[in-house]
Write a protein that binds this DNA or RNA. Sequence first.
DNA 1: CTGTTAGCGCATTCAC
DNA 2: GTGAATGCGCTAACAG
Lengths: 318, 318
Amino acid sequence: MAGIKEIARRANVSISTASYALNDSPKVKAETKARILEIAKELNYIPNMAGRTLKKQKTDLIGIYLTNYGGAFYGSLMKGITDGLNAEGYDVIICSGEKSHLFVPEKMVDGAIILDSTFPTEEIKNYVDRGHSIVVLDRRIKYKQLCNILLDNKRGSTIAIDLLSENNPEKIYLVTGPKDTYDSEERLKYAVKQLDYLEIEFEIIQGDFSKNGGTLAADIIYKKGQKNQHVFCLNDEMAIGMYDFFAETEWEIGQDIQIIGFDDTEVSRYVKPRLTTIRYSKEKWGAMAAAKLIAMLKGESVKNEIIRTHLVRGGSVK
Amino acid sequence: MAGIKEIARRANVSISTASYALNDSPKVKAETKARILEIAKELNYIPNMAGRTLKKQKTDLIGIYLTNYGGAFYGSLMKGITDGLNAEGYDVIICSGEKSHLFVPEKMVDGAIILDSTFPTEEIKNYVDRGHSIVVLDRRIKYKQLCNILLDNKRGSTIAIDLLSENNPEKIYLVTGPKDTYDSEERLKYAVKQLDYLEIEFEIIQGDFSKNGGTLAADIIYKKGQKNQHVFCLNDEMAIGMYDFFAETEWEIGQDIQIIGFDDTEVSRYVKPRLTTIRYSKEKWGAMAAAKLIAMLKGESVKNEIIRTHLVRGGSVK
DNA sequence: CTGTTAGCGCATTCAC
DNA sequence: GTGAATGCGCTAACAG
């Protein structure tokens, strides 16, 4: 409603003087400034973002791209990201859906942090080419100024297999995430590597990182009718799906079937027995992403980082 | 980089013709249009949002305001909201932090859905006065075109108390949320009403809707040294905090202490024993909010709605 | 069908 | 210290 020009008119000053006053420029006499500010308050003036953006060519906004099932991370990851970014004057919006990818080239956001496997790599590269600052958390992309903050999947998978191997299992089931998902493939790769090294048999069950995927995988294992099985679910979500399944059977988790997950989600802490899993600090992950993005925005060149992973023991593995 | 004028220049047409072509207007010859579009593709053209917004005075964006601990709702609530809004051509962004409140008056979003008790009521009213479309989910505000979608706290609280009363408890503890939180006060009010009606004693413990708040409340109850207690936690989060506490003691939930919560969060489904609680469809809640907002944006006048609540039985109450 | 032109709301350079 | 003028990128009314 009330634009800057209305204020200028009422204060009997030019538009530019009004603008200076509102932006607290030293070029305006204190007295005049006060008068203008008062009128602005009276008129309930709030600057229009589009106008300002058009002129300044920046929004001070950062877009965070999360997938649907990213909901599990929401809390702590976002805290890490937001704290860092806010401190530097940036505001954060969470985006989802294909259309919102355009926020980047449309310059609605000054930068982006991506943890969303549905965001195509080619698109990301394209935006980097256009000069946008992007930090990617869910895959490895070596490309110009692009920055990756990845989890130490190698260490995580190795630890997981090592733990399961202590029981001298005949074989170990590996339940994967969707095809072409970086974290799934990495975790699988290193798990297999360690299994080979330890000379343990294994069987891969195609999963999808969802609860339902875990339930289906559990069904496959259960139907074979052999108790005393060992499973590495490549994420917790699927492990929980297995809990759902076995709750309906006579098999006891931690006894008849040993399960280890990856991610240490909140639910994993509360299931009985507590899920043994691989943990990493989601808050640190977010904070690191924020720090790197800020550096990029300042024109500094940044290096990729790895977030450390470690074991959390629960009753789901003997 | 490449703006519309660059395209116009290369295509030897005027800026407006280029604009028309890009907006698929019938005012441009198919042939010309094709040529312009081709050049645009070549130049990797993407329109600048600020420019477009400034002109069109709308962004087709809806802001969703969620509090921190809203993380628990993220998944299903957002699905309900997003599905409805996307279908009408709106895109959704999740906002948090005080600064982002300004997105509304700055016209960065065409409308807002608020589930964030830190968003001051006065501010909301102010924005409504300015003509913005807002749907509020976390408090009752009777104000002009403002729309409220609230939970049926009355029914929920009444059911909760009724259930606990079946055990003929000497007294019932009520653990509240933060002061001045609508849902907390409502749930408390109706719980007390029902307790009075049933002539059951009760004691109110001030909580804060956080896990830690629940833990502290549990400590208070435990320290009294009297087993066989009954508690109505006004949200699940606090109930889970109680689980945390009692896990460290010899008291058994569902046996020595009966707990009922409110919200039916995911974790509540997995704790042992399963938390007895009050459920409502978060997805329906979100869908309703979306539907109402769309109606408002179309200039229709809308009525408030109530989301039905009902009991989910778990082992935490005998 | 296509070009000219005038803003949308604001920040900023350059005179005065 | 203040004002006039310009342009950010785009749309749309108006001419032609």
